[in-house]
Each structure stands twice: as C-alpha cells, then as structure tokens.
Write a protein that binds this DNA or RNA. Structure first.
Lengths: 226, 226
DNA sequence: TTATTTTTTTAGTTTTGCCTAAAAATAATA
DNA sequence: TATTATTTTTAGGCAAAACTAAAAAAATAA
C-alpha cells in the first residue's frame, strides 16, 4: 500500500467509527484535504484491492480486510504518538503531524518492538485505544465528564476534541491522561462544573466537560496508560 | 526536498567521502538502483537547487549547501540506527532498511529530541560518526585492524564493510562496537591474525582484519558510543 | 412532479520519478 | 590517429496522485 492509500483507508475507518452508514466522497475529501474527483479515483483503487465496498454514487464502507488494515495503521500512529510523548517529551498537541509521517514506516517488526519498548500501552496520549498486532482493540469504558456524577473520583482517560487549542487549554489546567478529577458542584443553569484536581478547585464550562472522557471503573486500569 | 532527492544527495555524499573527484552518473545509478537516464534527470534537479555542481558529461560534486543537507540526512539515518539497536534491540545487520525509511521524517525537533534521548551519541552501531545539528562531525581517529600493532589493546570502533553477511559473522565472533581486541600473533605469509577477545583467542583472516576499524587513542572515547 | 441545487463521476492535465531507445560525447584500443 | 566501446544525455512514455472543468446522478425545494 502506498502512503496515500494508507491515509485514505485510515480516514475512512475513523469516519466509520461514528456511523454505520456509508461514508460519502465529500466527507473523505474534507478529511484528506483533496478534491472530490481525486477521492473518486482513490476509492476505485481501494475497491479494486477489496479494501472497501463501493457502488457509484452510494459512498463506501470498509471490508473486513480494510478494517484490519486500517487498524494496523492506527496502531502504528498511536504507538508512535505514545513514544513521542512518553520518551521524547513532546506535549500531546505536538505529536499528530510527526506521527502522521511515522505511521507509514512499513516494518511490522519495528512496530512490535516499539510496542514492547513502550510496555504494551493500551491507550495513546489522547486516550485513544491502541489495537494490538491482530487489530484487536480492548476498549475501556469511558464516559464524558459532563455526564459524570457528583462527589466521585474519576480518572481522565481521553479527549474527544483533539485540537491543539483544546489540548493546550488542558495543559494549562494541569489535566492530562491519568489526572484524578472530582466534581464538587454542578451549576444547573448552564451545566458549568466546579471540579477538584489534586486539591485545587477550578471551574470548567459544559463545553470543556463534554470533550473530556473519564473512566469510572476499576482505577487499576489507569496502569495501562504507561 | 522529496524522499528521492534526499536519497540521491545522501548517496552522492557517501560516494564523495572516498574521493575528491567528480562522482559519475553510473556510480550514482548503481547505488540508487536506477538507470543512468533517471540519474541525469535528478542531477539536473539537484543542480537547479544548487545542491550540486554539474557540468554535462563531467560528473557532479556537492556544493557547500549540498554537503550540509546531506550531513543532516546522514545524521537522521545514524540516529535512527542507534535508536533501533540501543533501544529496540535490533541487531546491527537489521537496521539499515528501516533507518532508510525513518531518515526521511522531516521534523528537526524530532531528531534533536531523539539525539537527546539517546544521550548525544557520536557513533552509530556500525561505528560511523553522527553529525551534530550543525552538520559538524567529530571524527575519532580510526585504523584498520590489519594495520594495528601486536600486543596492544584496541577498541573496535567500526566496520568498513557493512554487509549483513559480514555483520552476522562479527556477531558470531562476539565482536561489536566497544569490544576490546588484542593481536597476539601475525602470520607473515598471509597476514592472518590471532587475536584475543575477552580471554578467548580466535584466528581471523586478513580480509576480516581489513574491514574492522579499531581505535588506539584514549579508551575513554569508548564512552561516547552509548 | 418538476426545477434547482448539491454531490459525485468522468475526461483531460500536471508533476514527480522512473523507464526504454536512440543520439551524442568521452574514453579506450588498435 | 582512427576506430570501437563505454558513458552520458536527450527524447518520448508511463504510472501515481493530485488538479480543473464539465457531465451525470441524487437530493432538495418549489
């Protein structure tokens, strides 16, 4: 597979995560930053390789093979992101572009050694799951902070919005994967939350809270992060 | 610069190391595994970018800018090779192909962080010098084992032949960067050497000895390896 | 239901990096 | 030195992945 093919496949996979419907040409074009006509060309190529199901004018879905291949690409991306943050001290808003390049390095052995070197992490620095070498994903149940209960301790396990703007905001508030958060008060009018992070309290808007994933199950799952 | 341009530049640099003459089209074609006509195309492109000096039918030399850019590519390659061997436990004959891909990842910050993570190594796993971020190379003086004196302790600092065949042979003999070698006897007829490595003696042919670099200066230079 | 808008596809180009075949220049040899 | 051989360059093509412009299909609105 070429780098371009891999990029399309990954993007179709990510778009498919939120829906069971066919993915439209335009939706793909937006994500890969290409024109719709270019997308049509590539779609045909991927369909020929039996990575996607495609009927003219009807959008695409991934085949079993396509899903597997996409997961392997996602695995590579997320392992590299973990490496960049955990080992090379990048902050979580800097890693995306670099990992985007690294994810296309072809050696399977490389990725498996990297996985071992990082201690088989299950979550990347944004809290997204890292598929294993068979493409299997162990999802940890996660809930948006905006849906959480008062006076319980939660662990931050991920973000919904991965824009560097939002990630920098979280850095400022000292919120990262693994941070323990407790909701002290919920303002009923606009759902603003007063939360406690390591003995300091801050106020966060509902918009923030609905972009932060927390985990309310076994706190030992925290250990899988690094 | 595209990946292909970078590859050509790196190869012209490596070919220039052993000679002060112009590098021929065919020599480049051999190394990049392309036809001479393709090389001519690329040569023109690199000359337009003022990375090489080129006159029709006269071969090429690198410009100052070309030398600098080539060193930066070599730096990336050798740092990745060091990473693969030191951190991901690859053996020194496995890293070349993978590093060949990794070396084209564009982020300067990535490479500088990697350099720091590896503790600013000066030599890669084959004993080749790693240029710093300004392209400066601190060469350690090295001599071929075939030229060394009897009954002195030397440190293996590199190899001349980097073929996986030779590297595997060295692995078998337990010779690697940093190995301490002493010549016990030299057979005058064919220059076969009897050497001592950590209290075991072996015989090695002149061919082997003239592909192994050793260092007879300050043994502390060993420390720069990892 | 027809007309309009939007989406998707087709057709034809461009650029990059490679190729083959043939021509031109240089090097080697008789 | 003239001839032959080798090397290098030119000319013309091809495939990948993008593009624009126009046509076709589908979705939306009057």
């Amino acid at each position: 597979m070429t780098i371009s093919e891999e990029n399309y496949l990954k993007i179709i996979y990510l778009l498919s995560e939120n829906t069971s419907k066919e993915i439209s040409t335009n939706a793909i074009a937006d994500m890969v930053k290409a024109k719709a006509s270019s997308v049509t060309d590539m779609i045909k190529k991927l369909a020929n390789k039996e990575l996607i199901n495609y009927e003219k004018y009807q959008g695409v879905t991934l085949t079993e093979l396509g899903i597997y291949k996409a997961k392997i690409i996602i695995r590579r991306q997320r392992l590299w992101e973990t490496f960049l943050v955990d080992k090379l001290n990048f902050s979580w808003d800097e890693v995306h572009e670099i990992a985007e390049e690294l994810e296309h390095i072809k050696s399977e052995k490389l990725i498996n050694h990297l996985d071992a070197f990082l201690n088989f992490p299950r979550l990347d620095p944004h809290g997204d799951s890292i598929p294993n070498q068979d493409g299997i994903i162990y999802e940890s149940q996660k809930v948006l902070l905006s849906e959480a209960d008062l006076n319980k301790k939660y662990i931050c396990v991920g973000v919904k919005d991965t824009s560097s703007h939002f990630l920098k905001f979280l850095d400022n508030k000292k919120i990262t994967i693994g941070t323990i958060i407790e909701i002290i008060e919920r303002e009923n009018y606009d759902n603003t939350l007063i939360i406690k992070i390591e003995n300091t309290t801050t106020t966060i808007s509902n918009k923030i809270a609905s972009n932060l994933y927390i985990n309310n199950t076994d706190p030992n799952q925290l250990l899988i992060t690094n």
